[in-house]
């Protein structure tokens, strides 16, 4: 018999708002726990009773099928009850503010709230206001911590570790929360990160995050262990961010030839959904070095791990 107090592990925080806040130990804890949860998804009965009686609310102000579904599956596999609130169908349309929504939800006493919002800082508002644990599923251009954690897990699985690896992230860095979270996570875990993209889409003073910047993709990818491609969105609010799709892919599409410049065993990653032919050539996306589908399955495991580690945290 193994007493519960032995080998007890802790994530002593109420919320997961960003990867910037996590230490190396905390990241390892999440990845190790996620690893253990992977096995459950291979069983016939993909369910454990661990979070039975827990309520997880998915509060999605931005449409997202993949992330929301991933969280929902994760919660259900732990036997938690899930409630999905999407902005277009809720009282938000009637003009209810985020603050009022937060207070209303708190009064219903869920256990965990997962929030995705188009404004940076929105999860922080929630975290300040309500006693429940908040998981940031993406806030504007700021952070998308669960994505970075599943990316780190994927890299760790394929490469045996993260320390010292050369990682290149290519795309619209300015508007990418995936890039930011990954930069925080990877630099914490000791990887060497290079950001690559059009000059107009590199955020100001980003070198201060401990990364190198390169606008020439061939130079950036040379010798890389991991090549992560970001999704390119051409229309943002009122303006077009880059002259044309064709111009972008001429410079920044990951083709088989460009991939040759990376290490022989380099892996190719993408948070999805993929714009085939724009940021990644179809044969590379489907090729042997692509780990894109691993990322998806790791996503459920990582989210299960986070729900598990944060549940009960406010008692």
């Amino acid at each position: 018999m193994t007493p519960a107090s032995d080998n007890a592990i802790t994530l002593t925080r109420k919320d997961l708002l960003g990867l910037k806040d996590l230490s190396r130990d905390e990241i390892n804890l999440v990845l190790d726990t996620a690893e253990s949860f992977k096995e459950i998804s291979t069983r016939t009965i993909k369910k454990v009773p661990t979070l039975r009686g827990t309520t997880v609310i998915n509060l999605f102000y931005e449409a997202s099928t993949r992330t929301r579904t991933s969280f929902e599956i994760a919660a259900k596999r732990l036997s938690a009850d899930t409630v999905n609130i999407s902005a277009s169908t809720s009282s938000v349309v009637k003009g209810e503010t985020l603050v009022d929504t937060a207070k209303t939800l708190e009064a219903m006493n869920p256990d965990i709230i997962v929030i995705r919002h188009s404004c940076a800082g929105a999860p922080h508002i929630l975290a300040r206001l309500v006693s429940q644990s908040i998981i940031n599923a993406g806030d504007g251009f700021h952070e998308h911590p669960t994505q970075a954690l599943l990316d780190l897990l994927t890299i760790r699985q394929r490469k045996g570790g993260i320390e010292g690896l050369k990682v290149v992230i290519v795309g619209d860095i300015q508007h990418s929360r995936v890039a930011r979270s990954n930069v925080y996570g990877m630099t914490t875990m000791g990887a060497r990160v290079t950001l690559c993209g059009p000059a107009i889409l590199i955020p100001r003073s980003v070198e201060q995050m401990g990364v190198t910047v390169e606008t020439d993709m061939k130079k950036a990818v040379r010798g890389a262990d991991v090549v992560m491609m970001l999704r390119m969105q051409f229309e943002r609010q009122r303006s077009i961010v880059f002259p044309s799709i064709r111009e972008y892919s001429q410079l920044f599409c990951l083709t088989g030839d460009t991939l040759e410049l990376a290490k022989k065993d380099a892996i190719v990653m993408h948070p999805g959904p993929i714009n085939r032919g724009t940021e990644i050539a179809p044969e590379v996306a489907d090729g042997p070095r692509s780990v894109i589908l691993d990322q998806v399955s790791n996503g459920v495991a990582v989210r299960m791990a986070l729900l598990y580690l944060l549940a009960g945290g406010r008692q």
């Binding site: 940076a120 251009f141 700021h142 201060q208 995050m209």
Partner: peptide, 12 residues
């Protein structure tokens, strides 16, 4: 627009 805005993910 500065490192702070880059860090916070806010347009500068």
């Amino acid at each position: 627009e500065s490192f702070v805005s880059t860090d916070l993910g806010l347009p500068g």
